[in-house]
Amino acid sequence: MIAPKGSDGPRVRLWDIGVRVTHGGFIILLPALWWSWKTGDMEWHKLFGIIMLGLVAFRILWGLVGSSTARFSRFVRGPAAIFAYLRGGTNDEQPLPVGHNPLGGWSVIVMLSLLGFQVATGLIAQDVDGLESGPLNHLVSYETADAARAVHGLIFNILLALIALHICAIFYYTVVRRDSLIAPMITGFRRFSGRIIEPVMASPLRLIMCITFAAALASWISNGAPLPQGE
């Protein structure tokens, strides 16, 4: 968070429903995906994977056209902004933007990219027997699908490391900086002291359009991405 926290400041709507539900979905889906794979229940694994695909697709769309705190253009910053943030040099005179800090913004990008690659490799991967396979497995060769399985396993481990880092950062903010990031991610609201730039929330219509598009994409891909058949 860039803007100073404060229990006395006005209550600001920080994270919209789209950001919170997507984030909550990742928290629920990742262990579910791991468990379904571990127990060999690939039907559930594929279903969870398709839901993950829908969430990632939605979050990318939402990062382009969603509420201001969800948009990539608002929180993806260059190295200068990151170093300034790390040095703690904030200017109290200026009203501050709220949302992901310059470092956290990149964490969102990396996490979302990894989830995207994870879904993509899962779509084409197959098990060692060629019995269980992702819905787009028929579009690639046996060798490519085998390689995708290996990459799928590798990305999962990178994701685990990143999630561990993410949890450590939340813990650091909660304990050391006495700033709970968890409550706003659940309720969507947060209090700020000092002058801030109020986030602009996207309209429900826009939310519904993004959800519809992401759901349609996930459904089409889960059916093997069929193209219209010319008779």
Binding site: V128, D129, G130, L131, S133, N137, H138, Y142, G224, Q229
Partner: peptide, 19 residues
């Protein structure tokens, strides 16, 4: 031999996905 079985399995699964 088992790898060949897996490859043939995929070939069959690919066919069964077609209309």
């Amino acid at each position: 031999h088992f790898k060949n079985i897996a490859k043939a399995n995929k070939a069959i699964a690919d066919e069964l996905k077609k209309p």
